[in-house]
Simulated scan of single mutants.
Amino acid sequence: MANYDIGFDLGTTSIIIYVVGKGIVVKEPSVIAVNQKTGEVLAIGEKAQEMAGKTPAHIVAKRPLENGVISDIDMTEEVVKYFIRKVSSSYVVKPKVAICVPSSVTNVESRAAVNAALSAGARKIFLVEEPIAAALGSGIDISKPRGRMVVDVGGGTADIAVISLNDVVLSTSVKCAGTQFDEKIINYVRLNRKVLIGERTAERVKKEIGAVMEGVLPETEMEVKGRSLETGLPVKITVSSSELTATLNEFAMSMVTTIKGILEKTPPELVGDIWEDGIMLTGGGSLIKGLPELISKETGVRCYVSETPIDCVAIGTGMALDLMEDGYSINYDRDY
């Protein structure tokens, strides 16, 4: 296989690109900054992220994907084109591109991703479901007649799937993921401390002191800055890990309930396999403290985080191309 074929993880919060033979070559926020007066795209990725919340009213830094789905097709096309051209601009031969998409993606959204890749110069495009890519990128042999459960907790959704014989047996998604945890922290601080904090501050709080289960994190405090809703002035407050746990736990239980629902519908033989092998968590959202412990406690099944939770989807998407070249049978959603 030529080393310019590309695996593209199109995420709600980040874009990760894997080039066969090179590994991960791009890891940037999936943010685009647009001048609403002229329609001009000003920045994409890290530069656009730096503008978020710090621009005049007519310049908006936004994510074209929300809650795991494409909310702005035109902007998504711009983002995909930008990154594929950034990676493949030095190649003489046009690359093959595999784009990882959420299980719940629609035909219209799929076509937008494909059109963007074609516009960027790809010669052939495949769409791969996130759970398949996550399993491959984590080293799971999905070709066997053995049930494996993957929970990919991304920025916008958690994709939950049971995989066997190169295909998804059962799958669903739930809007319980990274950005929603951030929103819960923002709402808690707003309602209980009368302070408004930004998305980036909430994400930092989540990563440093956020937990979805008591006892997995020592009592920790963190200073955050925001705007007082009572005075309208800047203010600094101290937030503790324990005061956030109940809110985050309540929200995480919606994911646990969905996982239980999938297990209840899974054929008995495959459930037995899952009980032996455990439930694998992937995605950046899986790193919130206490999540594997909570799922294990509520389901009775061992739960663990992939060794490469953030990169495994992009790696698996690239591997899907590699395996396809070797004649390995993988069930893709669509082949354009």
Rank of each mutant, 00 (worst) to 15 (best):
Y82L: 06
D72I: 07
D9T: 12
V41A: 15
D5H: 15
P64E: 02
P64M: 01
G53K: 15
Y4T: 15
T76M: 06
V41D: 13
P29I: 14
T38C: 13
Y18D: 08
K54W: 05
V26L: 10
D9G: 11
T12H: 12
Q36R: 11
K54P: 01
Y18G: 03
P56N: 07
A52K: 11
I73F: 13
S88P: 06
E66N: 08
V34Y: 08
V31Q: 07
Y82W: 06
L42N: 14
E40Y: 05
R63Y: 09
V31C: 05
A48C: 11
I70P: 01
Y82K: 08
K54S: 06
R63N: 10
A57V: 03
L42E: 15
K54Y: 04
V19G: 02
D72K: 09
I73E: 15
Y91F: 13
I59Q: 02
I6W: 11
S88R: 09
T55H: 05
I17V: 14
R63G: 07
I44K: 03
M51W: 05
T13H: 01
K54I: 00
V19Q: 13
V20S: 04
M75D: 14
G68E: 02
E77D: 05
I15W: 03
Y91H: 14
I73Q: 11
E77G: 10
F83Y: 13
P56L: 07
S30N: 15
V19Y: 01
V20Y: 02
K62R: 12
V20F: 00
L65I: 07
V41C: 10
K22R: 13
A52H: 08
K86H: 08
G7V: 12
A61V: 00
V26N: 06
Y4F: 15
K86T: 10
E28H: 06
K27E: 12
I15H: 03
G53A: 12
S90M: 06
I70Y: 01
V34G: 09
D74E: 08
I16G: 04
K62S: 05
V60W: 01
K81N: 04
E50I: 08
S14E: 05
A43H: 09
K47D: 15
R85Y: 00
V34M: 07
K37M: 02
V87S: 07
S90P: 00
S88H: 14
T55E: 05
G11K: 12
V25A: 07
V80H: 00
S90Y: 08
K86N: 12
V79S: 04
T13A: 13
